[in-house]
Amino acid sequence: MRETLTPLPEPDPAGARPPPRVSKKSRLRTYFLTGIIVAGPLAITIYITWWFISLIDGWVKPLVPASYLPDHYLPFSIPGIGLVIAFIAVTLLGFLTANLVGRSVVEFGEVLLARTPVISGLYKGLRQIFETLFSANGTSFRTVGLVEFPVKGTWSVVFVSAPAGPDVQTALGEENDHVGVFLPCAPNPTTGFFFYLPRADIIEVPMSIDDAAKLVMSAGVIQPEDPQVRLQAMAASIRAAQNGQATGPEAALEASSRRQEKLVSTE
């Protein structure tokens, strides 16, 4: 008598496995962290903006007669009136300075300040700084570079400012083209070290000043990211959430558990 063999069931392919379920606790934690990521920067931005507007209003409003302020006629205070008045006043001052009459008045005032012993040096230094930072043809930080500092083999992020002046270049030697660089300290980039280096010792990096400042303030945690890569990651997270799959740390834990299950099954 011929024996009939029953075929064994074929194993389910990996793609037919249903997606792992995410617990309510994990979803709640993900939603909470997402809310913090969205609300945190927004709240801090609103707070700083409100503080700046209140500061300018406190400076400008006492200088304006009360009869010219809307607060005198309304039962409530309108924030930002002082900021608007300051903006109009500064713009009008720039317009007058660009004309011949306004330029003559400014030059006359500078002559008076130049004759004052202490104020003259302070005014000249501040004006040079403001012209460098805010002028259209100024020489503010526009390039990011890497220098070998503090020891050989370690590289630090620097902001390249301007070439060395004639006196500094002559003192350092004409054979090398020296340039001034600012080495910011982390996590506060407003403090640091300024020194001159040969241009050949600086490796320029195709990075914006904003990205470099974020890199320094975060101590390397926030890296410059391609917008396309960011959009692709966001799209992948949205698709995973729509399919009921975990993302982020939960996805890593589930992937690790699946690998362990495969190892146990093979043994």
Rank of each mutant, 00 (worst) to 15 (best):
R17H: 13
E225I: 03
S140R: 11
L92C: 08
Q223M: 15
Q228F: 12
M207P: 01
S77A: 14
F95I: 09
P20T: 01
G165K: 00
L5W: 10
S104M: 14
Q169L: 09
E175F: 04
L74V: 04
Q169M: 08
P184F: 01
G153L: 05
R2W: 08
Y123M: 14
V151N: 10
I88V: 05
R230H: 01
E225C: 10
P224C: 05
A251E: 05
Q232M: 13
G40A: 09
F130W: 10
W50A: 15
I203E: 13
G109P: 04
P184W: 01
L172T: 00
G58P: 04
L253E: 13
G58A: 09
A66Q: 11
L263C: 04
T97G: 02
P187K: 06
G94W: 02
L100V: 02
V64L: 15
S257Q: 15
G125K: 15
G121C: 10
A246Q: 03
P249A: 10
P166V: 02
A186Y: 11
L55I: 00
I88D: 00
A136F: 10
V151G: 02
T45Q: 13
L172C: 03
A43K: 09
G58E: 06
S256W: 11
I202G: 00
P187F: 06
L55Q: 10
P189L: 02
P166E: 11
T170W: 11
K214F: 08
P75V: 03
V160R: 03
A14G: 07
V181P: 02
W59D: 07
E174N: 14
P13F: 12
A43H: 06
V221Y: 15
L93D: 04
M217I: 09
F195D: 08
D177F: 13
A136C: 04
D211Y: 00
S257I: 05
I56V: 14
G145H: 06
L183C: 10
A39C: 06
F130D: 08
D211P: 01
A114I: 01
F130Y: 13
V105H: 07
R258Y: 08
I78K: 12
P70K: 05
Y73K: 06
D201I: 01
P9N: 03
L146W: 08
G58S: 08
A86W: 06
L215S: 00
L183K: 09
